[in-house]
Amino acid sequence: MSDYLLEISHVSKYFQGLVAINDLSMKVKKGQIYGIIGPNGAGKTTLFNCITGIYRPEIGQILWKGKDIKGSHPHKIAELGILRTFQTIRLFSEMSVAENIMSGRHIKSKQRWYNGVIPTPAYYKDEKENWEKVGELMDFFHLSEYATTPAGDLSYGIQRRIEMARALAAEPELLILDEPAAGLNENETLELTQTIRKIQAMGVTIMMIEHDMEMVMSLCEYITVINFGAKISEGVPSFVQDDPVVIEAYIGSDEDDDDE
């Protein structure tokens, strides 16, 4: 077996003729914080959707611990230990914060099919353990005071924390974050950076898309840069930062934006 947790190998994804991802390859090591950057519309989120089974790439392989998981159902991918957050927050907004985080315990819960109707001693034990775990996560993310508040009523920054808590509740091996700092203020971003370090220290491998370069450069050990669906550069932050191709891509994309 290889030392890579996740290997993306020559993946392409098309949307009615549009090449959203073009022959993309990358390898993520266990315990790493791996960054994906690139201009708007580069295909970063599409890549995450391919990994998590929302989309099925037409070409290529996605290897999880050496096994191809391409095209698996999203719930199967989550069961493997790959959990994610969303660029546009997707919480169960009418439900309380605690209930939102509890959804992350779903795959860990050992309740049997008949426990939906009849409680058993094992059910009570399982239920209690899972809610306790939710309690721990609310403490970790400073969410305890909102336990009963509907998630949709809370500020953007807090909602981002709930989403991370929910994903972490499933005790993932790989945590996939799609622009976790988007919409956060400076303080919140700082706090997030520390939180991500703590999560890494728990032994969780992290892949993140982020536009906040300062944060990406300080957190990530390795970075892949995507433009128009294809990899244009990869390496350690200091290398990627100074790569002329990357600088060109970002300036070029600004001009594209202006044309529209």
């Binding site: 998590t52 089974g53 929302i54 159902h73 999203p74 719930h75 989550a78 069961e79 959990l83 994610r84 969303f86 997707r90 919480l91 169960f92 907004s93 009418e94 439900m95 209930e99 959804s103 992350g104 779903h106 795959i107 929910r166 994903a167 499933a170």
Partner: peptide, 15 residues
């Protein structure tokens, strides 16, 4: 409830 409120998010949590 999770499925009802957001099917994509529910799936992504392993449901």
């Amino acid at each position: 409830f999770y499925i009802h409120k957001d099917e994509i998010a529910a799936q992504s949590m392993g449901i």
